[in-house]
Amino acid sequence: MVEFLFIVFAVVAVGSAAGVVLARSPVGSLLFMVASLASVAALYVLLEAHFLAAIQVMVYAGAIMVLFLFVIMLLNLGHDYRRDLRLTLTALPLFALTGGIAALLILRFRGAEQAPIYRFFGGGDAIDAALAEQGAVGAIAHPLFTDYLVPFEITGILLLVAIVGAMALAKRHVDDPVPAPAPPAEPLAALDASAEEG
């Protein structure tokens, strides 16, 4: 049963990922992407990572994709994207490159319990133990607030900076609240004259 479900969702995930690249319109691409992300969430459920699956649906398939959709629909209304999305031959070497890296990774980690990645990490057994002991949320939250506390806190500042930067740039076209704003680039002579008077 699990294997059957895995095959179904894996095929949907890979197939709709191909659909993202091949779709003729950007909205179509986006909907394929939602399908792909949702089936990856289903794969997480099959791996018993329920918390990750919920987050995947809420954050990626939900919030981020809706934002994408809004931006595409709000900007460039009536623009014909067909020509922008044409698949050219230059993409082929890139496909070959990513395929090559994927093959390398598979060869590296296929059944390799002695791979360095497991030396510090503990592998599947460690995950099972943590899941049994702390549950799906605890297994993520505990390292996040202990081992990875520093990156977590820096991410907080990073998000603050992103919001401040976006607001500062978005505010650009609103009129200044400053009374009688001086035009920024008037000739020097005029300013100097006023400076001398003052």
Partner: peptide, 10 residues
Amino acid sequence: ELMSIAVYAM
């Protein structure tokens, strides 16, 4: 990223 995003906005 913290450095870069702030500088992009500036």
